[in-house]
Amino acid sequence: MSTSSVQIVADTLLSARQQGQPHVAAVFDKALAGADEAYAVQEAVSGALRWFANAAPRHWKSGGQSRQSVLTHAPLPPHGVWTSPAIANGFSFTRRGIEAEIALRLGRDVDARLAAELDETAAVELIDAMAVSIEIVDSRWTECMAAPPLLRLADLQCHGALILGDWQPWKARDWSRQVCRVAIGSKDVVERCGTHALGAPTWGLGAWLRHITRNGAIAGAGTVVTTGTWVGILDAREGDLVVAEFEGIGSTRVQL
């Protein structure tokens, strides 16, 4: 791993966060050699900003474009995790992309030994609750989702904020029939059914838990992960009210 390249990218992302202005990603297109270096940037940024100085990350995002892709993961800054109904007053965004997701909560501690053995069925048994969530997509790169993949991963996979609805007891569902609706301001409501990229929000749980515990850390009971959008990324503007609803589970809203 190139310590210098990791630090350069981390310093650039820190500057973007501190100044509220994104930087051009293309300059750093070849700076990171692989996912391990992107994760090292995540750790360098979170360490510099002391997001997890007193406790392990309690909220994560995890996912991929398909079951054939390599899943990626990012810890979420605690100051950007809100309870619905939320108001984003005073929170600075460069972009306000909207993803409607299902968040899942661990019901027990998980260590590396347990995580190593998990398939989807066993991982699901560790979940005790679910909630409708909205992720606001944002970026410290001017290119946002068009930035190189490793730089997006280094930047917490273009994360801005996470809004969580009411927790419901976990219950198995036919995700292929799950209806999701998203209303943004005065735009027409977007409705989708069974459109999770991995087929189910639970599919990648094992990979996520193995990532968390890879260096001996514990994924503690109560840790939350949101695992992918049902509607792609929808554009919103400052002042919009955003409401995401999943039939039979609940709804979440945020005033931008």
Rank of each mutant, 00 (worst) to 15 (best):
M1R: 09
T3Q: 14
S4N: 12
Q7K: 14
V9Q: 08
V9I: 13
A10W: 04
L14H: 10
S15W: 14
R17K: 09
Q19Y: 11
H23R: 15
D29P: 05
A31G: 08
L32S: 09
A33V: 07
G34Q: 08
A35S: 11
D36M: 14
Y39A: 13
V41P: 01
Q42F: 07
Q42E: 07
A44Q: 11
A55V: 11
P57N: 07
R58L: 07
K61P: 00
G63N: 04
G63D: 02
G64D: 06
R67C: 11
Q68G: 15
Q68W: 11
S69L: 10
S69K: 06
T72D: 11
L76E: 03
V81C: 06
W82E: 02
I87T: 12
I87D: 13
G90V: 02
G90Y: 06
F91E: 12
F93P: 05
R95W: 13
R96K: 12
G97Q: 04
D109E: 06
A112T: 08
L114T: 15
A116V: 04
A122K: 15
A123D: 01
A123V: 08
V124W: 00
E125N: 14
L126T: 02
D128M: 02
M130T: 06
I134K: 02
E135D: 05
V137F: 00
V137Y: 01
S139G: 06
E143A: 04
C144R: 11
L150A: 12
R152F: 03
A154S: 13
L156A: 15
Q157F: 08
C158D: 14
C158P: 04
G160F: 00
I163F: 01
L164Q: 01
D166T: 12
Q168V: 07
P169H: 07
P169V: 02
W170Y: 15
A172L: 09
A172Y: 05
S176D: 10
S176Y: 03
R177T: 11
R181W: 05
G185W: 09
S186P: 09
D188P: 11
V189F: 04
V189Q: 11
V189L: 07
V190S: 08
C193R: 14
H196E: 05
A197W: 08
A197R: 09
P201R: 00
W203K: 11
W203S: 13
G204I: 07
W208Q: 03
R210C: 04
R210P: 02
R210G: 03
G216L: 08
A219K: 01
A219Q: 02
G222V: 05
T227G: 01
W230D: 09
R237K: 14
E245D: 15
E245A: 12
F246T: 03
V254Y: 01
V254W: 00
Q255W: 12
Q255C: 13
Q255T: 09
L256K: 03
